[in-house]
């Protein structure tokens, strides 16, 4: 069963982030996917995350597909104009990629090539609209396509952003354009997530909640300072700070994640895990969360 079918049946979906390598050595990424494959339904492959140069998302998606995994292609508006975006999407479909996650993309100044031209010819709403047109057999200029894709399109939303309202307005537009699912930025405050859900219930689009295991108090602070749109509340940071050994830190990390997943599970249609190198904790997190 593929992701689209799982979502339409209302199954609780588990997706996991996969990061292409910095270089050509794809071995570790593929091995990690092989280890996690039995726990997750699809791998969501990042597109130059945080504007740091890596191998293309489409290449790793294709390699994952060849090993029997289901990929989700992340596509950002940061590096390609409307021509290149459409060209790459048509190519991805021809390579067997059926799912796309459309997002704005971080600004290049946050990455390792800060002088790169920030393209943003389309924004994420227009990218979703463009994919919808391709799915209908037309390009953005209205020209007919010979053979067309039928992507399942996902979009992202920051569920715990403050203030939330401007983000909700944009989310509603994406829902109007018919996105198949929303994926949230990582959530550390289940209460804030519930407030968000109450406001968007009527949209009728499945929501996958983002989860990043915290490795340490230092990492939590770093994310608060440096990762756009992430906020770890102080009590969680203190909980991690109290850990004395590596084992204790891992245990607390699993506890925190499982606790958040349990709290949001009744109000979500799935989770999106971003293990950031701690993929060995994924089975424990899912187990403790009762999934």
């Amino acid at each position: 069963m593929n992701l689209r079918e799982r979502l339409s049946r209302g199954e609780f979906v588990i997706t996991c982030e996969a990061g292409p390598p910095k270089g050509t050595d794809v071995g570790p990424a593929l091995e990690e996917a092989d280890r996690l494959g039995r726990y997750v339904h699809a791998f969501n492959v990042t597109d130059l995350q945080s504007s740091v140069l890596r191998m293309s998302s489409c290449a790793l998606c294709t390699l994952l597909k060849a090993r029997g995994h289901e990929p989700i292609l992340q596509v950002t508006c940061r590096d390609r104009n409307r021509l290149a975006l459409q060209a790459d999407l048509l190519g991805a479909w021809a390579l067997g990629i059926e799912n796309v996650l459309a997002l704005t993309g971080d600004h290049p100044v946050l990455g390792d090539h800060p002088g790169a031209w920030p393209v943003f010819d389309l924004d994420s709403v227009q990218l979703v609209a463009a994919i919808r047109e391709l799915n209908r057999g037309r390009d953005l200029a209205g020209n007919e396509l010979q053979g067309h894709p039928d992507f399942l399109v996902g979009a992202v939303v920051n569920a715990t952003a403050k203030p939330l309202e401007p983000h909700l307005a944009k989310m509603r537009l994406k829902a109007q354009l018919g996105v198949g699912f929303f994926q949230t930025q990582t959530v550390y405050d289940p209460q804030a997530y519930l407030e968000f859900v109450r406001k968007v219930e009527g949209l009728g689009v499945p929501i996958l909640v983002g989860v990043i295991p915290l490795k340490s108090a230092k990492m939590a602070r770093f994310m608060n300072e440096n990762i756009a749109g992430v906020h770890v509340p102080e009590p969680i940071i203190q909980e991690l700070e109290a850990a004395k050994t590596k084992e204790d830190r891992e245990k607390r990390s699993v506890d925190i994640c499982a606790r958040i997943v349990r709290a949001v599970k009744p109000y979500a249609h799935g989770i999106h895990l971003m293990p950031m190198g701690w993929d060995f904790l994924v089975p424990q997190i899912l187990d403790q969360a009762g999934i």
């Binding site: 924004d123 994420s124 952003a161 930025q185």
Partner: peptide
């Protein structure tokens, strides 16, 4: 900073 046309990106905070 990105010249977006439909509302804020995920990086807008407070």
């Amino acid at each position: 900073a990105k010249g977006l046309l439909h509302g804020p990106c995920g990086g807008s905070h407070e």
